[in-house]
Structure formats: C-alpha cells, structure tokens
Write a protein that binds this DNA or RNA. Structure first.
Length: 503
RNA sequence: GGCCCGUUCGUCUAGGGGUUAGGACGCCAGGUUUUCAUCCUGGUAGCACGAGUUCGAAUCUCGUACGGGCUACCA
C-alpha cells in the first residue's frame, strides 16, 4: 500500500513555524516512500475562519517547496479537500455510530453544560467531564424518553456525542513514543457533530483520514491526548487506524512554554514563513521570507529541530533529507527555537550558492531607489556573501558599494590619523588615479609607495578603508577600490580627509 | 487538580548496561586575513534529583522534582 500522509492545518491564521515542520516531516516521508503528500484544509470552525489564511498556507508551502500532491487547487481523486465542502458526509458516519450504540444525541444548552461543570466542581471534581458518570443526569437520547428525544432530534436540536465505554484501557502505538494507554474513564464523551451540522476535528479527522486512505498521521503532540478517542472511532466504524506519530513541540528561545506568535516580535525574529498582516489586530508579523532567509536553509534548520539523521550530517539538501528521513529518529522532547543556529544555516546556504543564483533574491531585498546593474550587483555578491547571513545584509552590510559612507568610525580614525599623513594620502591618490584601476595594480602601487617611504601599512591601510567604507570591515580593500572605480575612490578619499581634519 | 508525554553541555542532538559521554550552534583563545567575515587549531560546558537492580547505570525499575500537552458544540 502506498504511503499517504496529510498536512491538515486549520485556516485560522498564518502557518506557524511548528506547522511548517509538521508539513516538512509529512512531505519527507511521502517523498521517501514514493507516496502522496496531501493538503487538507480543516475549516470546520466557521467562527474562527480568517480570510486569506488558506492562501497564506498554500503560498507558504509553495515558497518552501513543499508542494502538495493533492489538495484544494492541487487536484487529486479524494477531494474535496476542504472539510467545509465535505460537510454532508460526516453526519452519516456520526449517525451510524448512534445506530450502533457508540454515540448518542445530546440536547444540553451551553448554560446547562456550564451549570453541570460548576456543580461538579463544587463537589470537588476538578474539570468535570461529560462522561459515563454524568451523562444520565443530562439531557440526551440516552437519558430522555424515546419520544421526547426523537422529537428533539427531528427539530434539529441535537448534537452527537461519542459514547465512551466505561473503564476500558485504550492503547495505541505511537511511532515515537511506543505504546500509549488511556483509560476511558478519564476520557469524556466528545462532541463529534456540532449544532451547525459541522463535525468537530475528531470526527472529521477520522472520517477524512479513512476516506483519503491516509496511512500515517504525523501531527503535533497536542493531539496525543485525544488519540484514544480517534482510535475508538476507527474501531466503532470497523476501520483500520493509520499509524500515529506525535511530534514534540517547538519551544520559545528562552523562558517557558511553546513558541507563540508574539515571540517573533519579542525576540526580533520571524516565527512565520511569510509576513502576515493580522487585520484584526492591525499588526504585522515578520516572515522568514521577508527577513531574507532561503527556504532551503529554513527547512534544513527545521528538520533538525526534533529529528536527526543518526549521523553527524547537518547541512542537507532536500534530496539528502528525503533519503535520510525516518520516523523512528524523531526525538521525544520539545525543542527550543535557536535563532543563532537558524542564521548559521542561512549563512551556510549563502556561501554554498552560486552568485548568479543569489542575484534575484538579493535584488528583491534591495531597498527601493537603489539602482545598480546586475553585473555590478553580482560582483558585490561575490565579495560579500561570506560576510552576511541574510539577503538584506548585502545592502545593509555592503552599503559602501552603493553610496559613500555617511559617517565614519571616529574612534579608529583618532587612533591613527594625524595631519602629517595628508601629503602621503595625496601621493597615494595620484598613484591610484594613474593606475589602470585593477585591484592588483592599485595594490602594488599603494603598498610599493608605503614600503618605499617606510610608512606603516597598519596606519594607512585601515585609514584608507575608513575613507571608502566608513568602518573597519568588509572585503579586500583593493577589490573594493576596483569595484568602486578610480574616480569614486578619489572623491571619497578627499571627502573623508576633509572630515578627518575636523576631528 | 486529573490524565498523558517528556528531561544528556546555554541551545539542537548522538549514545540505550563497561565510552576519556561524541558532534553542531553559541561563547572564549590562537593562527590566517595588516580590517571584518570565511577558513584552520584549541578551549569552555552536560547525563535533573533520590533510591533500587547489577560486578558495573547516562543507559533498566520505582519515586520525587521540573517542563510540556490535554482537560470546549477550537483546531
């Protein structure tokens, strides 16, 4: 049987980075096994739908290269892939469970449920459940007279709840955690079909996974505790359950708890793949794409957050990840999001990528109004790529390639500059403008002059660099001169020298 | 509170009865680059705690602590 996995986000907002990792693991398993990676939109909660969220999810997956084989807009023989469009399907299965005595109709109002919970709490029962102990005291098709219940059902009042067996151990195998057991007396009679006719996650999930022939359910750990309910539903329906794998959570960089959408702003990094404009809060959340990350680097970083290939390999192409991926190497404990390491991965990708391939993304990250031609930018890329971590850094860190420095490192200037140097700088300027403008020529000329006159390179060279760049960092000095051109170098030097005198 | 899951350097992790507990990020130092980055070399730092099993425990068992998840007509 061919492996079929699904990524099933609910379109209630942007795709969280943890969701991206879940999608990645699903994708990798599908590709490794030659199976299908399915996108299913779980939009059963009509109240929480957010406009644009589904498009955001798809755009994210496409940017990342995790393109679904089946899904809304991607084709496939098991559609529709939006649960809202499958609405009619679910009731039939819920009713079958009712007919078989494995589920029942309930008519309690929210107020009544609230009252029950409060009463139970007063009795000392913490977080009361709608369960075997309580259900005969509530209003449902089990406790009410048949005629009354039928009337309520006919009037469309009812919802459907799962009838949990009393005091029974339900076990299932989680590929990461091995055997996990829950006793049904700890489990509540979950609502599976809501008042509006929509299924809850639990029903929709089981029905769709079965109908879509899903073989492996790979999802976040938050689902582990409801898996017993799901296992029971498979049993009630006489279906074979898929293999379950629950992924550890991704935690905040520091402090307690799982990574949340606020952490991005708080720690100054992105927690979403793409920038997201939250219209309700009127807030913009940063995206990895906009922050100048390469999707391959992001994925490489993410794949190692909760999984390892069993050897020391860290830098992996998509093909290599696919080759090495296996569910049994997934780690059990939650992983902290390490911002520094994510940057390191991106830098590794930048350095390993050809200049030509970098051109388009670097161009896209340039601020508006900066004009330069492709070949110039390519040269800059070649000179800068091992000094930056993100696409936007080519401009911010290599600013001097695009305009004369607007400020200078005063401290470093004062350490070295005295007015006696002026005449030599004038001579150097002359040598530069007399040269052919190539880096080696200028280097020979300048260094030759300094040597001949027994002048300190450690004084002149850094000052020359500050004149051109404003600070003591960047690529080889003479390469910069060659890129800038003799004339520009001359202009910057005299401008800077004038400033040096004022210090 | 209850149930379930987890716990190896600061972080991501390898190791699953006998290892000098390995690697990576970060950090520190040195070298290269008369700058910065890259690169190279070295260093720093860890088995949550307590019992038990065993000749021997990071590894197995139990307990404790801590962390996390769930406990909705949300997913």
């Amino acid at each position: 049987m061919s492996v079929r996995v699904r990524f099933a986000p609910s379109p209630t907002g942007p795709l969280h980075i943890g969701g991206v990792r879940t999608a990645l693991y699903n994708y990798l398993l599908a590709k490794k096994e030659g199976g299908q990676f399915i996108l299913r939109i779980e939009d059963t909660d009509q109240n929480r739908l957010v406009a644009g969220a589904e498009d955001y999810i798809k755009e994210s997956l496409e940017w990342l290269g995790l393109v679904p084989d089946e899904g809304p807009g991607y084709g496939g023989d098991h559609g529709p892939y939006r649960q809202s469009e499958r609405k009619g399907l679910y009731a039939e299965y819920a009713q079958k469970m009712v007919a078989d005595g494995n589920a029942y109709y309930a008519f309690d109002t929210p107020e009544e449920l609230d009252k029950m919970r409060k009463e139970q709490e007063a009795l000392g029962h913490h977080s009361a459940k709608y369960d075997a102990r309580i259900r005969m005291q509530m209003r449902n098709s089990l406790s009410l007279a048949k005629e009354e219940a039928d009337k309520l059902i006919a009037s469309g009042e009812g919802i459907i709840r799962l009838k949990m067996p009393d005091n029974e151990d339900v076990s299932f195998v989680d590929l990461v955690r091995e055997k996990v057991t829950f006793n049904t007396k700890e489990l509540d009679d979950k609502v599976i079909l809501k008042k509006d006719g929509m299924p809850t996650y639990h029903l929709a999930n089981v029905v769709d996974d079965h109908l879509m022939k899903i073989t492996h359910v790979i999802r976040g750990e938050e689902w582990l505790s409801s898996t017993a309910h799901h296992v029971l539903m498979y049993r009630f329906m006489g279906w074979t359950a898929p293999q379950f794998t629950h992924l550890p959570l991704i935690l905040k960089p520091t402090g307690k708890g799982k990574l949340s959408k606020r952490d991005g702003a708080k720690f100054g990094f992105a927690v979403f793949p793409l920038e997201w404009h939250d219209k309700k809060e009127d807030e913009i959340y940063a995206g990895f794409r906009e922050s100048g990350f390469d999707p391959k680097a992001l994925l490489n970083f993410l794949v190692l957050l909760g999984w390892n290939p069993g050897n020391d390999e860290e830098l992996m192409s998509m093909a290599r990840m696919t080759e090495l991926f296996s569910l049994d190497k997934i780690v059990k404990s939650g992983a902290r999001f390490d911002v520094d390491k994510s940057k390191w991965f991106n830098q590794q990708y930048l350095m390993a990528t050809a200049d030509e391939a970098l051109l388009a993304p670097v161009k896209a990250a340039m601020p508006q109004g900066v004009i330069c031609d492709d070949s110039y930018l390519m040269t800059v890329i070649g000179l800068m790529k091992e000094r930056v971590t993100k696409y936007g850094d080519f401009y911010t860190e290599g600013n001097f390639f695009f305009s004369a420095p607007s400020s200078y490192d005063d401290k470093q200037i004062k350490k070295r500059y005295t007015a006696e140097l002026d005449s030599h700088f004038a001579q150097i300027d002359i040598l530069i403008s007399a040269s052919d403008g190539t880096a080696p020529a200028m280097e020979t000329a300048v260094k030759g002059y300094l040597t001949d006159n027994e002048l300190k390179m450690g004084v002149y060279l850094p000052l020359l660099r500050i004149m051109l760049c404003g600070e003591l960092k960047g690529p080889d000095l003479f390469q910069i001169m060659a890129v800038l051109g003799k004339d520009e170098v001359g202009e910057r030097n005299s401008k800077a020298l004038a400033y040096f005198k004022t210090l």
